[in-house]
């Protein structure tokens, strides 16, 4: 049964091929096979959203997608949000607004929030909270996350703020 299957996908804009077993989740392949460890596993049953990726533009829990189902699909992970050294306005606003503490849920929130702003450039606070309710955060109480999404919406809305910001300022910290 464990015969490996060849899968062709596009991940973060790059054509990507991998071999997987039928039983491997997309999350497992992203993390263990492709070493894209930005997507996190918090629960394994679709209740925390830490593994959220975009599958053909639609947010999904990658722990509940079989890797073989990704055949022919276009996948965006948190690693695909920034362009070159320029952070996505959401990433920039999360940093400036201190919208993360431990950071483990952050990739999932960023990917879901991107999907939201892609569809709805001016979401209300309630809409933001509703669409992000599939992503759990235990550190922040959500206040600063919601505000960061609001800020990113403003930045993307063309006041030019997003363009002014270059890459993150401080140097990356040690692991």
């Amino acid at each position: 049964m464990s015969k490996r299957i060849h899968v062709s996908t596009t991940i973060n804009g790059a054509p990507t091929e991998f071999l997987c077993e039928a039983r491997q989740s997309l999350l497992e392949v992203l993390r263990d096979t492709l070493r894209l460890t930005g997507s996190k596993e918090g629960c394994g049953n679709g209740n925390c959203g830490a593994c959220t990726v975009l599958l053909d533009g639609v947010p999904v829990d990658s722990c509940l997608v079989l890797a073989v189902e990704a055949e022919g699909a276009d996948i965006t992970t948190v690693e695909g949000l920034a362009h070159d050294t320029r952070l996505h306005p959401l990433q920039q606003c999360f940093l400036e607004g201190a919208a993360l503490q431990c950071g483990i849920c952050t990739p999932g929130f960023l990917v879901t929030a991107k999907a939201l702003l892609d569809r709805n450039p001016k979401p209300t606070e309630h809409k933001i909270r509703f669409q992000l309710s599939g992503n759990l955060c235990r550190c922040t109480g959500y206040d600063k996350i919601v505000r960061a999404v609001q800020e990113a919406a403003k930045a993307l809305d063309g006041n030019g703020r997003a363009e002014k910001k270059a890459a993150a300022k401080p140097r990356a910290a040690a692991h």
Binding site: G46, G49, T112
Partner: peptide
């Protein structure tokens, strides 16, 4: 039904 990510599938 679940969160948005669930509804995507």
């Amino acid at each position: 039904i679940g969160g948005w990510q669930i509804q995507g599938r």
